[in-house]
């Protein structure tokens, strides 16, 4: 079972790190003995290896072992990290929203078949294979969560923020969405209907937020600048830019 395996990892790590720490203190015979027994477990000639004592080192060790075994290509890992740090993120979803605000025909296509309409931008791929877009209106407010883990539309929003994956959000979004929204600064009148989308299957959801009043004349590019990640999850409204609000 994965659970008992995990416990095994934890115990061995604990023993090993205790041994390494004790050896590092140049202590008495007991500490030296513990360090030796840690070394005895190595059945080959790599005893010079510094024992990884935090997760960054353990991850680096695993990566280098898998590279040595030719199971992974570190350049492919670099490319994935670069893609999500620099290209695949909420700016993609913001372009979709801005297009929907400025092009009624696109909006109709987006709400009828999210996958196809988002595909017009090319924002498909892993975790965006089947997209549904839900529209916020003065009468209806939509909110997206994954109570079981972290399902999220990667191609349009990138990787989810920590709070989205956290226990408080996953636990509370379905039972007290209005309280959660209030903490995010969204106060909903009682007569607004709240729809919570628990995306626990293979369909991923994007919220089409309301366009702020006074921004009708803005270009698609300027509108996209206004659209926040949180508004496309449904925990925020899109704020008007200061000049148009004035």
């Amino acid at each position: 079972m994965a659970g008992s395996e995990h416990k095994g990892v934890g115990r061995r790590k604990f023993i090993k790190e205790t041994a390494a720490g004790a050896a590092g203190m140049a202590g008495g015979a007991g500490a030296a003995g513990a360090a030796e027994s840690a070394q005895e477990r190595h059945e080959h000639d790599h005893d010079h290896q510094v024992v990884p004592d935090d997760i960054a080192l353990r991850v680096r060790a695993l990566e280098s072992i898998l590279v040595e075994k030719e199971m992974i290509d570190p350049a492919a890992l670099d490319a994935v990290v670069d893609a999500y740090e620099n290209r695949i993120g909420p700016r993609n979803g913001a372009q979709v929203v801005a297009r929907a605000w400025t092009d009624p025909e696109y909006k109709a296509r987006l709400l009828a078949d999210g996958t196809a309409a988002i595909g017009e931008f090319g924002f498909l791929g892993a975790q965006g294979e089947h997209m549904v877009v839900v529209e916020n209106t003065p009468e209806v407010h939509n909110l997206v969560v994954c109570t079981l883990c972290s399902c999220y539309p990667w191609p349009t929003l990138g990787l989810p923020p920590v709070w989205y994956k956290s226990a408080p959000y996953r636990a509370r979004a379905v039972i007290e969405p209005r309280a959660v929204l209030r903490e995010f600064g969204v106060e909903l009148p009682d007569d607004v209907e709240v729809r919570v989308w628990d995306s626990t299957a293979e369909i991923r959801y994007l919220v089409l937020p309301e366009q702020p009043a006074g921004t009708e004349g803005l270009s698609e590019e300027a509108l996209a600048e206004l659209v926040s990640r949180d508004s496309m999850i449904g925990v925020a409204r899109v704020a008007a830019p200061p000049e148009s609000a004035a």
């Binding site: 997760i55 680096r60 492919a76 890992l77 990290v81 999500y84 993120g89 920590v162």
Partner: peptide
């Protein structure tokens, strides 16, 4: 940030590679 530590990004990418 997308990843708070370098190792988090490596773990994410590793998962997709393995």
């Amino acid at each position: 940030p997308v990843f708070h530590e370098t190792w988090e990004g490596r773990v994410y990418a590793l998962g997709r590679s393995i």
